[in-house]
Amino acid sequence: MAPGDALLEVRGLRKRWPDGRVVLDGIDLALARGEVTALLGPNGCGKSTLLRCLNRLEEHEEGRIWLAGELVSEGRPPGRRPGRAEQLALARLRRRIGLVFQQLELFPHLDVLGNVMLGPQHVLRRPRAEARRLALAALRRVGLEERAGAAPAALSGGQQQRVAIARALAMGPELLLFDEPTSALDPLLVRGLIEVIRDLARDGIGLLVVTHDLQVARAVADRVLFMDAGRIVFSGTPDQAFGGQHPELRGFTAS
């Protein structure tokens, strides 16, 4: 039953909405270090929910998740609230799994540096000077060091997204999750984003990118997963995925 040497391994994940609808219907997947995985699927297929289950912003009911061989979640019956110990475990898990939201959710009351420093300072409990150093390093990585003092609202959409990435990076995550990262970017900026993602993979971070943009998936991913109705219906290389010989993908790729 012990997982292999995968960075993240998920087995038998199931989740229902409170109204009884099944949203995740037995998900199995494994992600490797330094690998970019694209998760595709039609709207409402459960891909964003799966992403939120991985860092436990949502709780699933059945199934297990291992992170670097450590069992981090066994699911939780609906309605039960986490106790103090479980909240701390949650916080520890989320330090290791970064999430870049579709809406970015930068903190408007802080400047760029403040946004990126918040995690190292208060979650990692680093001294202020060191938290600043970590934050500046993360900003340098996304090429935004010189905008550290700007208000998030003063930046362009592409720059804001890179701040959101830097905010997640500053925590030193092992796995980084992206929820529809290209939905608000114009094509020129999409190229820049793809470069950033590839660059992070080279550093050994695992990446899972939820998208419905086939071009992006093709350009960025080492592996492609297709989801439909709460199940993963395809797993393979981009070439396999977009080669056209898989009937279960035809409906989606054609649309």
């Binding site: 909240q87 898990l93 989320r94 970064g98 939201f101 959710e105 997640a168």
Partner: peptide, 13 residues
């Protein structure tokens, strides 16, 4: 979403 973004960083409530 602001709350979720902060929780996702590993902050306690």
């Amino acid at each position: 979403g602001q709350r979720e973004a902060a929780l996702a960083l590993g902050m306690t409530p």
